Amino acid sequence: MIRTRDREVTVHIATPSPAPSATPRHIPDLSLEGTRAGLTEAALEAFVRLADIWRLTSRQASALLGESERTWFRIKSRTWTGVLSQDALTRISATVGLYKGLHLLFSDPLADEWVRRPNTETVFGGDSPVDFMIKGGIPAMLETRGYVDALRGGL
């Protein structure tokens, strides 16, 4: 409080607030079967819809998922009762992120066809993005998603 001749004035001195702590984002512990079990149903629902939208063959869908065609048919018919692996959840996350990025970048028809079209960009070597991802597995899936994200960001 500061007193002048005529009045008292309360002064609040602003102190710098502490820097925000670098709290890490919450990343689910996918090493726990319970965590994976809780994510499996929604992840599979998203992937089945995505495979349909992208008009993937059973071979392509099962290869992207990292499962056998037999398992893919059971997943698609909703008779599979397993729990997805860390790898399968990562694969689904990459493809769903890719789907979202494509729809932010292109019109719906092109966004849905882009993964099947041959691509002359160096990263794809003339293959379609889906074939590139099947051949290269998770690293190629993440690279494809990063490529689309970079296009969106103007890089």
Rank of each mutant, 00 (worst) to 15 (best):
S107Y: 01
G136N: 10
I92P: 00
L98I: 08
T57H: 01
S21F: 05
S17T: 11
L98V: 09
P16W: 02
P16Q: 04
A88Y: 00
E121R: 08
V48K: 02
G38R: 01
F124A: 12
G34F: 04
A63M: 03
D127F: 12
L44F: 02
A94V: 11
G136Q: 07
V48T: 11
I13Q: 05
D127V: 01
L30G: 08
H12Q: 10
L50R: 04
L50Q: 05
I53Y: 06
P28G: 06
N119F: 02
N119Y: 02
V48Y: 04
P139E: 10
I75Q: 10
L56Y: 02
A111H: 08
T10K: 09
L151C: 09
I134F: 03
G38C: 05
G137K: 00
T90C: 06
D52A: 15
T122K: 10
T81E: 11
F124C: 13
F124I: 09
W54A: 14
V96R: 00
R74K: 12
S21Y: 07
G136F: 04
A63Y: 04
R70F: 03
F132C: 05
K100P: 06
I53E: 10
L32C: 04
I2R: 14
G146I: 05
L56A: 12
L56N: 03
D127W: 02
G101D: 07
I2Q: 12
I92V: 15
G136K: 03
L30R: 03
T81A: 09
V48C: 04
S58E: 13
A150C: 03
T122Y: 07
D87N: 06
T4C: 02
W54R: 10
R49W: 12
S31R: 11
W114T: 01
L44C: 08
F132V: 13
W114H: 04
T144D: 07
A22T: 15
L151P: 11
Y99G: 00
G126E: 06
A46S: 11
A51P: 02
T35H: 06
L151G: 04
L30V: 12
G97A: 11
F47C: 03
Q60I: 00
G136W: 04
G34N: 09
P129C: 09
L64C: 12
L151Q: 04
L30K: 03
R116T: 15
S107N: 07
V130I: 09
T35S: 07
L155H: 06
M133H: 12
P109E: 10
A140W: 03
D127I: 00
A140R: 01
K76Q: 15
P28L: 11
V115Q: 03
R49L: 11
I134M: 09
Q60S: 11
A94N: 09
L102Q: 12
E45A: 07
R7E: 14
E45S: 01
Q86E: 15
A42V: 03
T120M: 10
L110C: 00
T35A: 14
M1T: 15
E33F: 13
F132P: 10
I13D: 08
P28C: 06
D131F: 02
